[in-house]
Design a protein around this nucleic acid. Structure first.
Length: 381
DNA sequence: GCTTCCCGCCACACT
DNA sequence: AGTGTGGCGGGAAGC
């Protein structure tokens, strides 16, 4: 089926870019993000987009995880749209607050939704789903199913999104995300395989502008920046051109990726703002890869021993955001405390639990020795 | 040479 | 048993 694309005479050589998951996702959205679409057939989507079903599964699993779609039945999905994202994100956050961090708790609701569900309220559906899961957990089949679910792209997506929405971090490197989500003691090949999945997820999330792919400032390692949902609904609606400033292709009428290139160099996320205002946006984002300028603002003092801490993915980097107001700085501090207090991922392997525990301890220490001017206490896990 | 990620095999789940 | 779903990793494009 995908070869239909290649049969086009205008396409001389194979190009991976033209078949990317991100591009396919954009076209998928363009196809279905219309007012009159309520139900989506995977077969229909695959044939209209000129790809194999397998690729559609990747997309719908990620989109469903962020509330854009909802599985209705075999081969059938309900279209919720971008308006479903805030609710889904809120749910993930609430779920995290309640301590439902385990991969199992972060259920795959696609399996559990009754066919009669309207999916109009993803949150309520989700909360119903969790107890259903535990009730049936005794069965062998469910154990096997859970095992599979633990590895699912949907769950990985949710946990990936949680890294941002539950910690208020807004820049996480690929390495860090992989370690947090997948563990760092597994074999090289397992890790490599899982990182492939992170790329898959990132490409879809980037296509809906929830994140953008970027690099860490210091090491130039690949990283993901959280753009969040705010203001994205209109800009992301399929069919609307991506404004200037982005090197992403603008989508014309061709829904099947032919002759269209993806450019991952620059993803404009704030499409109507100048570069300067984007800088400012970092402050306004609930961002915690804390772009709070310790050196220039003078609001924090760097502890002489702080360099000895290994903070892991949520390191309080020393780069400062000059324009951060006192309240913002205070809020950021509080966010970090909240992170340490509420983020208790249920890692399966001991080493990863220890790793996270180490990060957390390092953070507590750093916080208490350098910035703790308040009486906020970090409860024990 | 390393990173990124498309592709499709095939195991598992569902009907 | 047939079909749907999706984990997984090989390997090639891209850089």
């Amino acid at each position: 089926m995908a070869n239909l694309l290649l049969s086009d005479s205008s396409l001389k050589a194979y190009s991976r870019k033209q078949k990317s998951l991100g591009l396919l996702c954009s076209n998928f959205l363009r196809l279905y993000d219309r007012g009159d679409v309520h139900s989506i057939s995977l077969d229909n989507a695959a044939s209209r987009l000129g790809v194999e079903r397998r690729r559609i599964y990747d997309i719908v699993n990620v989109l469903e995880s962020v509330g854009i779609l909802c599985r209705k039945a075999k081969n059938q999905y309900s279209w919720i749209g971008f308006s479903g994202i805030p609710k889904a994100l809120r749910h993930l956050k609430e779920e995290d607050m309640k301590g439902n961090n385990s991969p199992i708790a972060a259920y795959d609701h696609s399996r559990l939704i009754d066919e009669d569900e309207t999916c109009s309220d993803l949150t309520s559906v989700s909360h119903e789903s969790i107890p259903m899961m535990s009730k049936s957990s005794a069965s062998v089949r469910c154990v096997a199913s859970e095992n599979r679910r633990e590895k699912s792209l949907a769950l990985l997506t949710q946990n990936f999104v949680k890294l941002f929405v539950c910690s208020n971090a807004h820049l996480i490197s690929l390495d860090e995300a992989a370690k947090l989500l997948l563990g760092d003691t597994q074999s090289e090949s397992v890790m490599r395989s899982k990182i492939r999945r992170l790329y898959d997820i990132a490409n879809v999330l980037a296509a809906i502008h929830l994140i953008e792919k970027t690099h860490t400032v210091d090491t130039r390692k690949p990283a993901f920046r959280w753009l969040g949902f705010r203001g994205k609904v209109e800009n992301c609606r399929a069919g609307k051109p991506i404004p200037c400033g982005s090197n992403k292709r603008t989508f014309g009428t061709d829904i099947t990726n032919i002759n269209l290139k993806r450019n991952k160099v620059v993803n404009s996320f704030d499409l109507n703002k100048s570069p300067n205002s984007q800088k400012h946006k970092h402050v306004h984002l609930e961002g915690c890869r804390v772009e709070v300028d310790l050196n220039q603002s003078g609001k924090f003092e760097r502890h002489p021993n702080s360099k000895s801490f290994i903070f892991g993915p949520f390191s309080p980097i020393a780069r400062l955001e000059v324009r951060a107001s006192k309240n913002e700085v205070k809020r950021v501090r509080h966010n970090w405390v909240s992170l340490a207090s509420t983020y208790h991922p249920q890692y399966q392997n001991q080493a990863l639990r220890e790793l996270f525990s180490h990060y957390k301890d390092a953070w507590k220490l750093w916080y208490s020795e350098t910035v703790n001017r308040s009486s906020i206490q970090i409860p024990e896990a």
